[in-house]
Design a binder for these strands. Structure first.
Lengths: 201, 201
DNA sequence: CAGAAGCGGATATGGTGCATCCGGTACGTG
DNA sequence: CACGTACCGGATGCACCATATCCGCTTCTG
């Protein structure tokens, strides 16, 4: 998007055609590798997976963080926009629940993205910005849902991290069966956060 | 207890008095270090924390696994016994819930123990045995609770790992506040697993 | 007091990730 | 087509880390 974190911000000359192509290849490879191996994957891994030399990768992205930024900002901005749109919904709780379902569904098959959601650090680039946006929107949603009497009133923004962490933990389980069951557990937790409504069953 | 995993099983001569004392020191240090730093702590760490040389530790325990065994078998056997006792309870669901509350409370301030509960591997020593016992007892409890109509009938033994993983994830959160909230989340999850009873509230 | 048992911790070993450097390749402009 | 330049490759050096050993010295015990 901005190229701020790649290379030196000064050299803004357009890349040679083949170089640009390789840049794309690197980002694509990064997306795939980070998705399955997580952020601890090596830039060497990425290079190899892209069918390129290590040097090529390091020339374009000074370190792993820069590449991760290029790979994940779009995705995270997307989630942030999603959270933003959720604010338009009348029913704040439903909107929050919907957002969590969608966001976590994206994270489900992307280990790197999950790690990014958890890690509080990770620089101050677009990723941190997007994360802040997401949590801010969610905080507003929770506030409203509380006001609307659909969210338990002892549930606050501080509960967001635990919720995500829990579902993430299920997704990270080694057993195939278990990790596919995250939907169930998300629903259980959401149910637990819901203010006890007049229940009929 | 058995000394099976320490040293060579052959040399079963009693230790010199000071050596035995140091062995205790090592185990105690191991307990403390593993509790706060987790199983990834180094035997060097443990030695240093015990105020002993590295060699002393390696002489007594060939590797980290052996020490971890010595440190944690008792604890795990204890949990297994606890699970066993839970089987005596009339109300299977309540017994299961109680066991989980107690067991997880012990794990809360012991990172090493938590890792041990998660890791499916970890040899075939007393630890694996205790783990198997625990899960077996829990499986029986769940089976009964299902039969008693207090546990949702789509909940099986396979849900045990996810439950533990979720609570563990909350306990592992960096924020002080969040990690202290694991009780709440355990209750939420337990509530979600409970078969919908005729609720009066 | 002799000699066996135990101790300490500097150090060798092997493994891992990161990042560079430079001889060679491919582009694209004149 | 030819030449300069941007770019590529990946072997290689570096730094760090946990593990495990070895052997001169100390402490115990009979």
């Amino acid at each position: 998007m901005d190229g701020k974190t790649e290379q030196s911000a000064a050299t803004n000359r357009p890349l040679r055609r083949d170089a640009e192509l390789n840049r794309r290849r690197i980002i694509d490879a990064g997306r795939e590798v980070f998705a399955v191996r997580g952020l601890q994957a090596t830039l060497n891994d990425v290079a190899h997976h892209a069918g390129l030399g290590v040097g090529t990768v390091y020339r374009r992205f000074p370190d792993k963080q820069a590449l991760a930024e290029a790979v994940f900002v779009d995705e995270l901005d997307d989630l942030a926009a999603m959270a933003r749109r959720a604010l338009d919904d009348r029913d704040a709780f439903a909107a929050l629940a919907g957002f969590l379902r969608n966001a976590l569904a994206r994270a489900a098959d992307n280990r790197g993205l999950r790690e990014l959601m958890r890690l509080g650090e990770f620089g101050e680039g677009g990723i941190a910005r997007a994360r802040l946006g997401i949590t801010a929107h969610c905080a507003r949603l929770m506030e409203r849902a509380r006001a609307q009497g659909t969210l338990r009133d002892d549930v606050t923004e501080a509960d967001l991290a635990p919720i995500v962490a829990m579902v993430d933990a299920v997704m990270a389980l080694p057993e195939e069966r278990s990790s596919a069951q995250w939907h169930r557990y998300l629903e259980i937790v959401l149910d637990g956060l819901r203010a006890r409504p007049p229940r009929a069953s």
